[in-house]
Design a protein around this nucleic acid. Structure first.
Length: 160
DNA sequence: GCCAACGTTGGC
DNA sequence: GCCAACGTTGGC
């Protein structure tokens, strides 16, 4: 396999009441549709590449935190829901010849042995510079450094 | 359910 | 281009 660039790392949020790591495990692979934030869109459209590592984060739930590992499973392509009039993600001002919203497919890798809660993440010195643990952070797709990735996954083997 | 933080919209 | 109003996210 020839790789033109080093693997990158990302974190993607999902609300488990709507779509959880278990749903991803069942389906194996899922188009990450419905993202309607320009910064998150730019990451998916311009920077994510197949094979990149993804941490799946459960948000807006009883215990928010990192729940599993996935990978970028496709190149980016236009989010089809933006053109579906009956979709809640429909965007009437987006044009098929110039799509506004883009996505990637996400492939399941594995569920973590245990959920690594936000309280734990906040306590990790390695994550001090990540927007993930900053108050008021609303970005649903964000980049991680290799150090962030390692620090988060190292927690899996530790007692909370 | 509350509310702080943030992004987006639209009037001017 | 500014900024107030509004809508949404997300932790608690």
């Amino acid at each position: 396999m020839s790789s033109k660039r080093a693997q990158r790392y990302w974190l993607m949020k999902t609300e488990p009441d709507g779509f959880s790591i278990d749903d991803l495990a069942r389906r194996g692979r899922e188009p990450w549709d419905g993202v309607r934030n320009y910064q998150a869109r730019n990451f998916m459209r311009d920077e994510m590449k197949p094979g990149d590592g993804v941490l799946i984060y459960h948000s807006a739930c009883a215990t928010p935190g990192v729940a599993g590992i996935a990978e970028v499973a496709s190149d980016s392509y236009p989010d089809p829901t933006q053109f579906r009039r009956n979709s809640k993600y429909f965007d009437e001002s987006s044009r098929p010849d110039e799509p506004r919203w883009w996505l990637v497919d996400v492939g399941f890798v594995r569920k973590l042995d245990r959920l690594i809660g936000l309280d734990e993440l906040k306590a990790l010195p390695a994550l001090e510079d990540s927007p993930l643990v900053r108050r008021g952070n609303r970005l649903s797709v964000l980049p991680l450094t290799a150090a962030h990735w390692r620090a988060i996954l190292a927690q899996e083997k530790k007692n909370p």
